[in-house]
């Protein structure tokens, strides 16, 4: 029986006979999923409030990876300083873009909004080439997380374990922000009835700006965290943004919890799929998307569109 399985898929055979290996794949899935969650959460947050699908989110992620390279590798600052710097840098960039460009198009058709964000992708992609050149950089692991941690049944790279922990922490922090703070309540109100909020004398544009900054900072932070295993290089944004799209659609646009579940599912499907049938690596994620959409057209935790257009 096992020989038959081995014939079909050597990876599956190892998976079945080696629990340690299966456990490592589980950790691979979670760590990858959590890194993607941090990035996709920003995308989902922005969509939830601004109703804009931001194609430039991938480029923000790429900038995050580059910034951590500059601050950590070139300037020699600690890794975490670099990661925070990435988040801050992207927050500033986002504020500028929101104030100068996005302002113009909140009332426009969604097509226009999509294309505007795509224009930002094109221009910022080249800007990255001008600033950092076209070389592929490698970013080291932070010294304290360079090695592996003994988990009893197996060793696992400490850096990846950190990702498994930081993802849920960010989920909790975002929930706390949304549910427990005045800012969170106003944001929620802004998604439901922005005229009413404006009539109450609340600065709605400021809420929009702040959400866009927070979402983009998450992309920058996620990019910084990814840098040690997704080396900064031009074009690294093109596939990532599609991965994020898959995650937020599977989870349901605008749902934070949905994004979390979507990211985990993505990690599981990608990693176990790659082990069982290496040739299908990229296909599995899209199949996951199709299956979910067949059952729930608006994603696992999404709400149906409010009437037609």
């Amino acid at each position: 029986m096992l020989d038959l399985i081995r014939e079909f898929s050597p990876g599956l055979a190892i998976l079945l006979t080696n629990p340690q290996f299966a456990f490592i794949q589980l950790l691979n899935s979670i760590s990858q999923g959590m890194n993607l969650f941090i990035i996709a959460a920003g995308l989902s947050l922005i969509f939830g409030v601004l109703k804009v699908i931001n194609f430039a989110h991938g480029v923000f992620y790429m900038f995050g990876a580059y910034v951590v390279h500059t601050v950590f590798m070139d300037w020699g600052a600690p890794f975490w300083v670099g990661a925070i710097a990435s988040a801050l840098a992207l927050g500033v960039i986002a504020a500028i873009i929101e104030r100068t460009l996005f302002r113009q198009i909140y009332e426009a058709e969604h097509l226009m909004q999509l294309l505007l964000t795509f224009a930002i992708v094109l221009i910022m992609g080249d800007l990255a080439k001008v600033i950092w050149g076209t070389e592929q950089y490698s970013v080291s692991y932070p010294a304290s997380l360079k090695g592996a941690t003994d988990l009893g049944i197996t060793f696992y790279p400490s850096y990846r374990l950190m990702l498994c922990i930081i993802g849920p922490l960010i989920l909790i922090a975002l929930y706390w922000f949304a549910e427990r703070t005045r800012w969170g309540r106003m944001t929620k109100a802004a998604t439901q009835d922005r005229e009413m909020l404006a009539a109450l004398g609340i600065n709605v544009p400021l809420i929009y700006t702040s959400v866009f900054i927070l979402g983009s900072a998450l992309a920058g932070f996620g990019g910084a965290l990814a840098a040690p295993f997704s080396s900064p290089v031009p074009g690294m944004d093109a596939t990532l943004i599609v991965e994020c799209f898959v995650i937020v659609i599977v989870g349901g646009l605008g749902s934070l919890w949905g994004t979390f579940v979507g990211a985990l599912l993505y990690g599981l499907v990608f990693n176990f799929g790659s082990v069982i049938y290496p040739n299908g690596q990229d296909v599995f994620a899209y199949l996951l998307l199709l299956v979910v959409l067949l059952i729930r057209p608006w994603g696992l935790y999404g709400k149906p569109e409010a009437g037609g257009h």
Binding site: K51, I53, F245, V246, I249, L253, L290, E305, G308
Partner: peptide
């Protein structure tokens, strides 16, 4: 419709690509 339509067409095309 709308955004959902755009995203879904994108995802299908990426399936073809993959």
């Amino acid at each position: 419709t709308d955004i959902y339509f755009a995203m879904l067409t994108l995802a299908f095309s990426m399936l073809v690509w993959a």
